[in-house]
Design a protein around this nucleic acid. Sequence first.
DNA 1: TCAATAGTTCAATATTCTTGAACAATGGGA
DNA 2: TCCCATTGTTCAAGAATATTGAACTATTGA
Lengths: 106, 106
Amino acid sequence: MRSLHHPAAGAITLEGVLHALSDPARLQIVRNLDESCPRTCGEAGCPSLPRSTLSHHFRILREAGLVRSERDGVSMRNTLRRDELDKRFPGLLAAVLSQDCGSEAD
Amino acid sequence: MRSLHHPAAGAITLEGVLHALSDPARLQIVRNLDESCPRTCGEAGCPSLPRSTLSHHFRILREAGLVRSERDGVSMRNTLRRDELDKRFPGLLAAVLSQDCGSEAD
DNA sequence: TCAATAGTTCAATATTCTTGAACAATGGGA
DNA sequence: TCCCATTGTTCAAGAATATTGAACTATTGA
């Protein structure tokens, strides 16, 4: 397995972050990581998605700089890079995650 | 020309807004619309893009609910749906547009 | 009516997304 | 140590979306 790529905090782009958050599954994953502690892919909160798709979504999140993935035994420990993101883009993550995404009704 | 589709405020989705903002050209367009008054496509701030590409980007912005496009004579008047967006997703647009997007250096 | 201007739509190519199948890495027995 | 169950990643093929030149539509003015 090639080592997983994590961008430096300064290399995180606004477009990349927005793109990573623009997918329902990835937004759900980030919400889960924000609420609770490190999670494995399987605990991401998207039980209906195939593993390969989940892996793809985690890669997008990782390469956008939102998530750090470290191996922990047989699974991965995924954590939100909250502090770095808040420093790089103050208020952005809070503004996105505070939105009520459940019902689209007016 | 078919009439252009604008979603109702209540039908605007967070994912759609984030996806619309996740493209550099579209983010630039929204920044320009936010700073100044209604603009035509040609005044969008992306002089190097072909017309068809610009039209595509405006369609994404329109169908995501970010921009309202009305015909004004031979051109279009594009306006940011700022009030509706602020009501639907409080603080979101401000948080995105306040980010410094120019230099990615740390 | 003819031409100029502003955008849209179409069509072809290119890039990205989705996902089953194969592969790799770790850890727990026997 | 050798299997093997568990977790993810990578690969590959088809689906979906993005880019853009060319053709088309709508509006205005001469």
